[in-house]
Amino acid sequence: MGTSLYIENYCIIESGKILLDGVEVFSSDADSFADFSKEALRHFTIQYPKFFKMDHLSKLAFLGSELLLKDLSGKENTALLFANASSSLDTDINYQSSISDKENYFPSPAVFVYTLPNICLGEISIRHQLKTENSFFIFGAFNPEFMFGYAENLIQTQKAQRVLCGWTELLGDEYKAFLYVVSKDGKIAHTIENLKALYEN
């Protein structure tokens, strides 16, 4: 039994490397995610000053979505379906340290706003002007069964034409992103098995 939906393109960001449709397009020796993401932005000549205000989770999600969406036409009705394991804990820990010590108490709204994992969806929506369905989930590990089912549902019920799916996991300097676009066009069938294989690359 086949499926009528496809994985149009996909991207992996992990261990200082970025792969687009299975091909390495960028690598860096940077030790920290901060340096790695900055170098990647420069490498792909992405002009977007707001990037520098984002937290690391948003930067990771932004980079992946940028590479997948920049050359897609007719992307207006692209829903966002994202998930990870650590939610916004990377920024939560950072924010917690700003309020733990009453002698050194400096809660900042610019940090606090990123203590929600769905903020990265807002960043992507603003960048690509996507007034579309969006939702952020948390699982213990990448959940291809769920991602498959929910993306299929969004398209079959015509809530979206395309779905940009993303597993964007980040905590400290450990990160792994797997993003892909599901639509009626493409060569790789949208199946749970294919999602597993691409994720493990």
Binding site: P109, V113, G122, Q129, T132, E133
Partner: peptide
């Protein structure tokens, strides 16, 4: 329906678009 404003991360769209 759950649709994003695509406008601002810490404030709603002035037109209530989403």
């Amino acid at each position: 329906g759950s649709i994003n404003d695509a406008n601002h991360i810490s404030g709603p769209s002035r037109t209530g678009e989403g």
